[in-house]
Design a binder for these strands. Sequence first.
DNA 1: AATCCAATCAACCGCGGTGTC
DNA 2: AGACACCGCGGTTGATTGGAT
Length: 265
Amino acid sequence: MVRAPCCEKMGLKRGPWSLEEDQILTSYIQKHGHGNWRALPKLAGLLRCGKSCRLRWINYLRPDIKRGNFTNEEEENIIKLHEMLGNRWSAIAAKLPGRTDNEIKNVWHTHLKKKLLKTNQTNSEAKKKVITKQKIKRSDSNSSTITQSESASACTTSSSDFSSVTVGEKIEVKSEDIESMEEETMPEIDESFWTEAALDETSTDMKSSSLNISNEIMPLQCPLSNSNEIFPQNHDDYNSNLDDGMDFWYDIFIRTGDQIELPEF
DNA sequence: AATCCAATCAACCGCGGTGTC
DNA sequence: AGACACCGCGGTTGATTGGAT
């Protein structure tokens, strides 16, 4: 595919927009809309490429842009959505009216990533203690065994950290430990969040698809494929698998004492 | 007051997806 | 079917700002 030459090569202006350019672009779009971004600058009389105009409009000039600092609520929503969606900034932005993907991306890299890292460091210290305790108690016949599969570590939410557990290793988890781990690792997400964020992605009633095996459960939020080849290794893989027909979100419940066999679909 | 440095954020770049011919 | 044009997205860059020394 032959790419169009960049703005500079075409003799077009780059860099920060002037007030005059903003006014020209705004008034043109208000009058005519933006049917064709590539043709727009010529028609509006701007020495900019269409891409630059589109970006300026979407990220700055649109009338419904909410400016100013992010509220705590907005930041929490971004963190939750990022846990689910990964770096799909436009999908996250779609859930936050008045905020742009660029703005969210910036706030993530500048504030939230650090904030989350700090929180996770505290949590992972606590979790490591729990897991170490579990390993020591491995010979206890009253305790149960869970296969910590490769997929499980990949499918836990980003705030969950099994990095100290070897892939394929069997670890022993007691129900009371699971309860405390769950408290530490699983963020509280209200009903409306799942409905809006997860179900919009899949158009599937996730909750009705849950596999509720027992009262003693450790939930992992995992996407399941319709095929046997299942779990993605990271968010990007998840995203591409989702696009490749990964149709359903499930809550996977792992019951203590069971060797888990993942269901085939 | 001058300089340095880190944080912030607007803008750009390049790629992939999709529509059209 | 494939070549092309366009759009939208995510990653990255670089100018600006503000605080520290």
